[in-house]
Amino acid sequence: MGKLKVYYGWSRIGNVRKKRALSVMFENEIQGCRSERGQRCLRTIQDTVIERYQTDEEEKEGKQQNRIFTEYSLFLDEKPINGSLEKCLLINNEADKNHVSKTMREKISEALRKSFLYANPGYKEPSSQLELKFE
């Protein structure tokens, strides 16, 4: 395991960001990310819920970047998620399955779910049409 971290959280809505999103921030270098300025930047971008260390493969990709953070977002109110928290967490879980153990993925999903439901107490999963699931 590497020394760089991955931060999972919900994006902060404000003047720049207008849409709800699951935000996953990857550190690309330790000095800038862990400095006070880097952590302040992270706090303005997202409300961090849980963090983990990157795998060696993820860390190798990060060191090729020229920014201190790389962000991936899953927008809640856009296709294919269409406002479904469970679908958003499922897509994130699938994206992590090559790098993260199943127990850690479940822990991440549960922490994100609890945080979202705490911040959105009246949330209800949207009713969807009949879906076919092939496995």
Score class of each variant (00 low, 15 high):
Leu90Ser: 14
Pro80Phe: 12
Asn93Leu: 04
Asp77Cys: 04
Asp47Thr: 11
Arg40Thr: 05
Asn93Val: 04
Ile81Val: 13
Leu76Asn: 01
Glu71Ala: 09
Asp56Pro: 11
Arg67Lys: 15
Thr48Val: 15
Lys87Gln: 07
Met25Leu: 12
Glu51Cys: 15
Val24Ser: 02
Asn82Glu: 07
Asp47Leu: 08
Ile30Gln: 05
Glu57Pro: 03
Cys41Ala: 10
Cys41Ile: 08
Leu89Glu: 08
Thr70Lys: 12
Gly32Thr: 04
Glu36Phe: 02
Asn66Cys: 10
Glu58Cys: 12
Arg43Ala: 07
Ile30Trp: 04
Glu57Leu: 12
Arg43Pro: 00
Asp47Pro: 02
Tyr53Ser: 10
Asp47Met: 09
Thr55Phe: 11
Glu57Val: 12
Gly38Ile: 03
Arg67Gln: 15
Phe26Cys: 01
Glu27Pro: 07
Cys33Ser: 14
Gln39Tyr: 06
Ser23Lys: 06
Lys79Asp: 07
Ile45His: 08
Glu59Thr: 13
Gln46Met: 15
Thr70Gln: 12
Leu74Phe: 08
Ile30Asp: 05
Gln64Tyr: 09
Glu59His: 11
Glu57Gln: 14
Arg52Pro: 11
Tyr53Ile: 07
Lys79Tyr: 02
Glu86Ser: 14
Tyr72Pro: 02
Gly83Pro: 00
Lys60Thr: 15
Ser35Thr: 05
Asn93Pro: 04
Asp77Tyr: 07
Ser84Leu: 07
Glu27Ile: 06
Phe26Val: 00
Ile91Met: 15
Glu78Arg: 08
Val49Pro: 06
Ile30Leu: 08
Glu94Asn: 15
Glu36Met: 05
Lys79His: 02
Asn92Thr: 03
Val49Cys: 04
Asp47Lys: 13
Phe75Ser: 01
Gln65Ser: 14
Leu74Thr: 11
Arg34Trp: 01
Ser23Glu: 09
Glu61His: 12
Gln31His: 09
Lys79Pro: 02
Asn93Phe: 13
Glu78Leu: 11
Tyr72Asp: 03
Gly83Tyr: 01
Glu59Trp: 10
Gly32Glu: 06
Lys63Asn: 02
Thr48Ala: 08
Ile50Arg: 01
Ile81Gly: 00
Arg67Asp: 09
Thr55Gly: 08
Gln31Gly: 10
Gln31Met: 09
Ile45Pro: 00
Asn93Tyr: 15
Leu85Asn: 01
Asn92Phe: 04
Lys87Thr: 09
Glu29Phe: 01
